[in-house]
Write a protein that binds this DNA or RNA. Structure first.
Ligand SMILES: Nc1ccn([C@H]2C[C@H](O)[C@@H](COP(=O)(O)OP(=O)(O)OP(=O)(O)O)O2)c(=O)n1
Length: 832
DNA sequence: CCTAATGCCTAG
DNA sequence: TGAGCTAGGCATTAGG
């Protein structure tokens, strides 16, 4: 940034004495108009950020990555943690994947992986033998080549349809390989719309009905699935197997850029030594704009006046760069590089150069996706800074903000903007917190308060312009806040362990990191399902839209409403739906219909089961379902997270681990959910409705077993009564008055009922409520006990206190009333 | 004044 | 592969 140097140097030399003089106090003592609070903020910030060595921020802040040093591609391997991936051609080769990553020593890598061809399948006509397929193959090759001029080959192979068990009978499929993945969609639609010319020997009398295709999936995912690459895992290119690109061949700004064939690429499973993380460089930034009175800043009018940046290496607690790019002059901030600019254009360009030098792997911030990124881009466009929007790792690849939207039943419609930074991961803490945490407010201020226990004391937006138009010191004040806003996302990310948790999810489900924020549950499931299907040579049909059809869900036991002054034990099935799917081997691949049962001569209860819903599935003895294998992996990861949770003592870390455990639980439950998603791509209502029907049967049976066993007639002190239950839980009043007795009985009852079910179904004794206030279905409160000494917490479900559609007063009133009732046991007092 | 449909949010 | 699922409470509103 040569343009920036003069003002910047001036600022530093002018005020060096101040830095040396009393860094801690900064300017506070000599600037009476500055608030006490601001100095506190600064002091805290300085503590948080820590000291750089010495005081000369300019000299000590090394922007560039460590140099690569000598590298001998004939002797040394390239080994990196993959962080981003994209489809991209290389030279004449239309099919290549670009993998971006970071080595253990922190160097950036881009690897072109070539030679992998995209494909899809179609089924040969029913009854075709291999001999019949020969001429059909030739026919297809010519016909398809006319429609889609990228057919590489048509190959006849034995495969099996994912849906339905047909006695392990494989049948003939044609694998159509293309030379350019961009055409796969066109190929698919050519086949599926079934233009008349595709009609082979009049086999399809109805020329409207097209040919069903199988295994159609995006090229990048296909590549990752077939090569066994999971998102955020380690990739190795052995010496001699890759070629380093010469300068003129390079497409990226990465320190290492190489090319290799996909067959030589090693994708390490993310376990053992490959569970490590690379020292990713993380840039956290924030911008301030000078808006006008009462108007939200508009990029065509309102300038960007400051950009604060904080750069940290993953695994280190303190940032190694922090700076503020300022329009106009700005007094110094302790241990912070201030870069001053007279012209906004220069500032923007200098920031872009900074970005390129720092070469961050991860860019984070608060609402950067919908504000900072688009604003910077629009502003630069307005100022005609044509060289500005290049933030990617791919040379000549412009950064643009695109409209994107996400809509689903559960999340509703969400409009967002997507800005490409190819090769760098983005993590918008706002999006992340909105996704993972239910809060009343999502301002940076309240989120920081929630997780970091800190108010940020906003500079009111009307003040921004005023401060900017003031003196170097008022602009410094603004810069301090801007810096703080840049640093908070970094601290939130550390505190919430976002990178670790999301990395685990990417590794378990196999999808690229950025999918976790931009996509839903379906893609994760599909990634896992395709991997399993590939192992077993199963092909997955591209289901046409099914008619929307609802199915019955879970039972909620009619509550015996009231206030209970005796301990109420809660028994809960662990991961109910996933365990049902596992226990009964429910899967696409085990689904049977009457025909196949007859044809294969299967014996009921031995070879297959009939679910309470009337659907039929073969037993694990005949064939083990894919779903139960997928669930094993998800639940295994969840179990490990829960184990860590149990041994962790820090309460905040516990909460974070709990969040991780919950995310894995939702992914497991979504396996069930997707089978019931008729708008999705892999619906299978027999699985979904059988799962819920088993669930309904199980909660009934649990209730009956408990009430039948714990009776006076059987020598217990009271007749037990199930007063409530929802989906997978029962609340039992054993009648005993002592916590200890209730816990003992609960423990015993859980084991007793578990023994009546198939593995891995397990009923667990989880907690005792004492006392317990049961208001209605899905509405109750109680003191939550897991030990006899002290209650863990007051637990409130569904009541106004936990709902966000109420005013705070109502919540506080209800909260105090509940406190009175439950803790003080003062029912009369609560009535007032 | 009553009921049914709808929206929102939560339980599981 | 665009998008996990159902049950259910409670406030509001449309319609008679
Ligand atoms: N987001 C959710 C939560 C639950 N369920 C369904 C499937 C679960 O198996 C069942 C019971 O839900 P719980 O909340 O009790 O959770 P689990 O039983 O799955 O897990 P835990 O082991 O924590 O009890 O409800 C679901 O489909 N989606």
């Amino acid at each position: 940034m040569p343009e920036a140097i003069p003002p910047h140097k001036r600022a530093l030399t002018d005020t060096t004495n101040n830095i040396r003089g009393d860094a801690r106090k900064g300017f506070g003592s000599t600037q009476p108009q500055k608030s006490q609070f601001e100095e506190e903020v600064l002091e805290k910030l300085t503590q948080d950020i820590g000291d750089l060595k010495g005081n000369n921020a300019e000299k000590d802040q090394q922007w560039e990555r460590p140099p690569l040093g000598d590298f001998d591609p004939t002797k040394e391997n390239i080994c990196f943690q993959q962080i981003d991936a994209e489809e991209g051609r290389f030279g004449a080769d239309k099919m290549a994947v670009r993998l971006f990553g970071v080595t253990e020593l922190g160097q950036s890598v881009m690897l072109h992986v070539t030679g992998f061809q995209h494909y899809l399948y179609i089924a040969a006509p029913v009854g075709f033998t291999k001999e019949d397929c020969g001429p059909y193959r030739a026919f297809l090759e010519t016909k398809l080549a006319q429609m889609v001029p990228v057919i590489q080959s048509v190959e006849v192979t034995l495969r099996e349809n994912l849906y339905g068990f047909q006695g392990n009978q494989k049948s003939w499929y044609l694998k159509i390989t293309v030379t350019d993945p961009k055409f796969i969609a066109r190929l698919r639609s050519a086949l599926e719309t079934g233009s008349g010319s595709m009609n082979y020997k009049g086999l399809w009398s109805n020329s409207d009905s097209g040919i069903l295709t199988f295994d159609s999936i995006q090229y990048l995912l296909r590549f990752m699935i077939d090569t066994g690459l999971h998102g955020m895992s380690w990739v190795e290119a052995k010496a001699g197997k890759f070629r380093l690109l010469s300068d003129h061949e390079r497409q990226s700004n990465c320190q290492v850029e190489a090319i290799m064939d996909y067959r030589d690429m090693i994708a390490h499973a993310p376990n053992g030594e490959w569970a490590k993380m690379a020292p990713l460089r993380i840039l956290s930034f924030d911008i301030e704009c000078a808006g006008r009175q009462g108007i939200f800043p508009e990029p065509n009018v309102d300038p960007v006046i400051q950009i604060a940046n904080v750069v940290t290496r993953y695994g280190e607690s303190k940032p190694f760069i922090r700076n503020v790019f300022c329009l106009d002059t700005c007094s110094l901030i302790v241990n912070t590089q201030i870069l001053e600019f007279e012209k906004e254009e220069r500032m923007l360009m200098a920031w872009r150069d900074f970005l390129e030098k720092v070469d961050p792997d991860v860019i984070i911030g608060y609402n950067i996706a919908n504000f900072d990124f688009p604003y910077l881009l629009d502003r630069a466009k307005h100022l005609k800074c044509t060289q500005f929007p290049y933030w990617t790792r791919v040379r000549n690849c412009r950064t643009e903000a695109k409209e994107a939207s996400f809509s689903s039943k559960q999340m509703g419609n969400r409009e967002t903007k997507a800005t490409n930074t190819n090769g760098r991961i983005q993590l918008d803490l706002l999006q992340l917190v909105q996704r993972d945490h239910q809060l009343r407010s999502y301002t940076l201020n309240s989120v920081s308060y929630e997780f970091l226990g800190e108010q940020k004391e906003d500079v009111h937006h009307t003040m921004i312009t005023e401060l900017f138009n003031g003196t170097p010191d008022s602009r410094r004040r603004l810069a301090v806040y801007c810096l703080k806003d840049a640093y908070l996302p970094q601290r939130l990310m550390d505190k919430l362990m976002c990178l670790v948790n999301y990395t685990e999810m990417a590794r378990v489900t196999g999808v690229p990191f950025n999918y976790l924020l931009s996509r839903g549950q379906q893609v994760k499931f599909i990634s896992q399902l395709f991997r399993k299907a590939l192992e077993q040579q199963l092909v997955i049909p591209n289901s046409k839209s099914q008619d929307e059809q609802d199915y019955e869900g879970a039972t909620v036991i009619e509550p015996k409403r009231g206030y209970y002054g005796v301990p109420i034990a809660t028994l809960d099935f662990a991961s109910l739906y996933p365990s049902i799917i596992q226990a009964h081997n429910l899967c696409y691949t085990t689904l049977l219909n009457k025909n196949s049962v007859e044809k294969l001569g299967l014996k009921k209860d031995e070879d297959y089961i009939v679910t309470p819903n009337g659907d039929m599935f073969c037993t694990a003895k005949v064939r083990k379902g894919l779903l139960s294998q997928i669930l094993e992996e998800l639940l295994g990861a969840r179990k490990r997270a829960k184990k860590e949770l149990a041994s962790e003592t820090d309460p905040f870390k516990k909460a974070v681990l709990n969040g991780r455990q919950l995310a894995l639980k939702i992914s497991a439950n979504s396996v069930y959910g997707l089978t019931g998603a008729t708008v999705g791509k892999l619906p299978c209502l027999p699985i979904a409705s059988s799962t819920t029907s088993y669930g309904r049967q199980m909660i009934e049976k649990t209730k009956a077993e408990v009430e039948a066993r714990y009776t006076i007639a059987n020598g217990y002190s009271h007749d037990a009564q199930v007063i409530y239950g929802d989906t997978d839980s029962v609340m039992v009043k054993f009648g005993v008055t002592e916590l200890e007795d209730a816990m003992k009985l609960g423990e015993e009852a859980a084991d007793y009922v578990s023994s009546k079910f198939i593995k891995p179904i397990k009923l667990e004794f989880e907690k005792v409520y004492f006392p317990y206030l049961l208001i209605n279905k899905k509405r109750y409160a109680g003191l939550y006990w897991t030990n006899t000494k002290k209650h863990d917490k007051m637990d409130t479900k569904g009541i106004e206190t936990v709902r966000r559609d109420n005013c705070l007063l109502v919540q506080n009133v209800i909260e105090t009333v509940l406190n009175k009732i439950l803790i003080d046991r003062d029912i009369d007092g609560a009535q007032e």
